[in-house]
Design a protein around this nucleic acid. Structure first.
Lengths: 337, 337
DNA sequence: ATGAAAGCGCTAACAT
DNA sequence: ATGTTAGCGCTTTCAT
């Protein structure tokens, strides 16, 4: 039948408690004993029963990845992060669970409490935009549940990962400037995402550095969706003096801009250069292939989860890690006509 | 502190076992008692502790969704299914966990056993192509772990969901025929996916019904990826007599075909009509928007999980459900020139 | 550094 | 229809 901790103890001629110590990497076990117990575990292919461990130890070995399913239905960005989080959890023998969590609604705290009561995650990984939803963070702290964030607005007092998105954004705009573009438009994202602010700031910074006064008509608010990209582009194309390049704050909107360009009979990149941000698989599948900023989403999910796991395992060295970006120049950008 | 089952029992003036009966919808509780216990649970906001339930009851209330992460990195198709499975599990207070599982490798059974030993899922949801991997099914049966499948090759002795993909495929080809196309090519998928066979069969059926002899050069093997769609299309375009329409077995390959068409200077749909299958979000974001077969992936995930849950809850009425498809005519198909 | 005893919060098996 | 008892397989607390 099932091999229990007690069986391992017997085989190694130690008490159950000692096996438990070895299993949990606790102190006060001599090296010799530790080896012996490890060998017995190995030999018997011992697998601790999660429910017994959880019940007795009052922890679940479970990490929940929280995401807002409001504007993000089946997004590839989230899927990649999930992949990384899962890998990190696996490597430390934690389970992972995906939990959609709508922010809107006055019963938010109740729903969060229900999630915790039902599943008892030891910690959570937060993805934008709920990385910065104050009621959520407050409640997690009250409940003593550690969390790590992917690209939160505030880096202070936070662990997880972030990228210098403002610099990345500036890099993209500088690429367009170097191609001779001057009328460069920006389609921004939803304001409660930190990404929107950083990417807009990077755009402004690059434009200002190039000595270009900001034309308010060239900055259009989007919502990170394909449809919002289409709408923003139509608005830009209707301008008496239309832009020669559009930098959209993410790839989905950039694909909307390209779609609208086709619709308007504008050739990309000959009549219009288009830049995106994220480098989701879609970027390479568009025609022409989209020039964009590569964000290592999978790796970011992995690193964020690893920081969380450091805390859960009682290590004090969890940090806010900075991840590198890269400019992927493809075929949607070209010298200004 | 935490409200335990014992507390509810005291409040309702019954024994713990009776509360347990109510909690698990067991028989042999009078309606009056049941009501009283339910009211007490509600009033005290009682949440059973999963680990205690699992340990004592020897079940985990956990459903694992197994997928092959070999050729499917971060696919939107899987993300949608996941979404549906999650909703179904939530509705029955089960947890869900995603588990990538490579089929290749001789240690497959060992890895599956480890998965089971580590997480103890009560049941699993299988996605293509592992729905038909014999060693997997064999082991699950040996271990007595129920499973439900999404679009398995064999419907016999299986529960889950399927679609009449052959008819759907035939419908697409008939759409192209109705537009006057005669040289219609097909880019098929990987052979170990049932989908490849059904979609090819539907293509052949429609062509034969139209009295068209099959031209072997018009059927090219792909691999369900964008890159394979590009490669297949290049091969088709190199034909002395190239096709006027291409039906790819999924949207990713169809997008590859469109990409290659652009590359070759062929206009879609004027010079070439292109059809896909699945209706992933990408389909609507391409230019021109892709005509495709809509597969209700999210709903399919939900229904498959619901069938599994019927079994887990001891109901005998789990089935292989058939889901409807629809032809989404968009802008990538047009009358033959 | 190691062990013995007492639970964690539920459910199974057996009463009644 | 309801209750009693004895665990499930671990970790805790407290000894030694």
């Amino acid at each position: 039948m099932r091999v229990r901790l007690e069986d391992v103890a017997r085989a190694a001629s130690v008490s159950p408690k000692t096996v438990s110590r070895v299993l949990n990497d606790e102190a006060n076990v001599s090296d010799a004993t530790r080896q012996r117990v490890r060998a017995a575990m190995e030999a018997m292919d011992y697998r601790p029963l999660p429910s017994a461990r959880s019940l007795a130890g009052n922890r679940s070995f479970l990490v929940a990845m929280l995401y807002d399913n409001n504007d993000n239905p089946a997004s590839t960005y989230l899927a990649e992060i999930q992949d990384g989080v899962l890998e990190a959890c696996d490597s430390h023998r934690y389970s992972m669970m995906m939990r959609p969590l709508r922010m809107r609604g006055d019963d938010f705290v109740r729903r969060l409490d229900a999630l915790i009561a039902d599943h008892h995650p030891d910690g959570v990984v937060l993805t934008p935009p709920i990385t910065d939803y104050a009621p959520l963070l407050k409640r997690l702290r009250e409940r003593g549940i550690p969390y790590a964030s992917v690209s939160p607005m505030s880096r202070a007092d936070n662990i997880g990962v972030h990228m210098d998105e403002q610099l990345a954004s500036r890099t993209m705009v500088e690429h367009l400037l170097a191609l001779g573009h001057r009328r460069i438009a920006h389609v921004s994202g939803i304001s409660d995402h930190g990404a929107s602010g950083w990417r807009l700031a990077g755009y402004r910074e690059a434009m200002a550095a190039a000595g270009l006064a900001e034309d308010p008509a060239l900055v259009v608010q989007g919502a990170f969706t394909f449809a919002s990209g289409v709408a923003a582009a139509r608005q830009l194309f209707a301008l008496k003096q239309r832009p020669t390049a559009v930098f959209a704050a993410n790839d989905d909107m950039a694909s909307g801009v390209m779609w609208a360009a086709h619709e308007a009979g504008l050739r990309v990149p000959q009549d219009l250069s288009v830049g995106g941000f994220d480098d989701i698989p879609l970027a390479s599948q568009l025609w022409p292939a989209l020039t964009t900023i590569r964000q290592p989403s999978r790796e970011m999910g992995r690193m964020a989860a690893l920081q969380l796991l450091e805390v859960l395992r009682g290590r004090g060295d969890a940090q806010m890690m900075q991840m590198p970006f890269s400019l992927e120049v493809r075929d949607s950008t070209a010298p200004v006509a």
